[in-house]
């Protein structure tokens, strides 16, 4: 049963993979005029243009171009950077770890604050705790994350001098410096997620706490926190699993902005640099790897949801 459920999810993912790769590839078709000329600039020599056209396969029909690009990509060859000449796959994978660490911390922040706010908010509806939680729920989804980042930098780096304004230390190099360097970026990255989780968990908790089995739990003589912990959260957290999957994609995208603000050498910064340098193979590589990661995470959350929720039948 479970195996068939898994198989069906895999059959859903495969066409998605094909279409997303097609989209990433098609980005090059959006370049107005001659892509080779646009990428190399007006003062490029004829030999260089010809070489780039050959490298990108621009002299072939589009469908063949896609086929070559896809078969190379499957073998791990995403081409070479037009700017530095290094392999795109190498550049992307060295930066993948950095971004992953930042996003993982942001995810932890989102859940910690989201759970805290949502629970304090439903314990006493319409109390000041509830209002604070709702305030952050509203603010977190509207505040521009790079503006939040600037405010925090002014506060914690410029005035207090507690945390570095820019830079990144990997957790494997120096765990304490890692925490210092990652605290502000992942907080800014996670603020949107925290707000989303607060809003969603709050409304689903309120709904769950009104149901019959919660009244039964109270009448058994359980305390408020026991009810919330044992019966409320377990049922209310379920939809949050799906949200977590969506948030992951959202955060991965937001690294583009946050990594630029904090000068973190991750995938987001690489994406911005490759556009500014008109390094198209690199841009395609970054976008492709990011979307692959998202598809994998979505697949995993789908399966987890299926396992956790007994109401979903594996048929």
């Amino acid at each position: 049963m479970f195996f068939r459920f898994l198989l069906r999810r895999i059959f859903y993912v495969i066409p998605m993979l094909l279409i997303t790769t097609l989209i990433v590839f098609s980005l090059i078709l959006l370049i107005p005029g001659d892509p080779a000329l646009a990428l190399l600039g007006d003062n490029a020599t004829a030999e260089k243009l010809a070489a780039l056209r050959a490298q990108l396969g621009l002299d072939q029909p589009i469908i063949m171009q896609y086929w070559h690009w896809l078969t190379n990509a499957i073998q791990g060859d995403l081409g070479r950077s037009l700017f530095t000449g290094e392999y795109v796959s190498d550049a992307v994978f060295t930066r993948l770890g950095v971004t992953f660490q930042v996003v993982a911390m942001a995810m932890i922040f989102s859940f910690a604050f989201g759970l805290l706010f949502a629970i304090t908010s439903v314990i006493k509806p319409n109390s000041w705790m509830d209002y604070i939680a709702r305030f952050f729920g509203v603010l977190g989804t509207a505040i521009p994350n790079f503006w939040l980042a600037m405010i925090l930098v002014v506060l914690f780096s410029v005035h207090l001098g507690w945390l570095p304004a820019t830079g990144f230390t990997s957790i494997s190099d120096h765990p304490v410096d890692f925490m210092k360097s990652v605290l502000l970026p992942s907080f800014c990255l996670g603020s949107f997620g925290a707000a989303q989780i607060t809003r969603q968990l709050r409304s689903s908790l309120i709904e769950v706490l009104e149901s019959d089995y919660i009244r039964t739990a109270y009448s058994k003589g359980l305390l408020l926190w026991q009810v919330i912990w044992k019966h409320g959260l377990r049922n209310a957290l379920l939809p949050v699993v799906t949200t977590a999957g969506l948030l992951f994609g959202n955060m991965l995208g937001a690294t583009v902005v946050i990594e630029s603000v904090f000068a973190i050498p991750g995938m987001g910064q690489l994406a911005v640099h490759s556009i500014l340098q008109r390094d198209f193979p690199m841009l395609q590589g970054v976008v492709l790897i990011m979307v692959l990661m998202i598809l994998i995470i979505n697949f995993i959350t789908d399966v987890i949801y299926g396992v956790l929720d007994p109401r979903i039948e594996f048929e």
Partner: peptide
């Protein structure tokens, strides 16, 4: 499934 801001970028 693409992050909105990355695709816009």
């Amino acid at each position: 499934s693409f992050p909105a801001i990355l695709l816009a970028l």
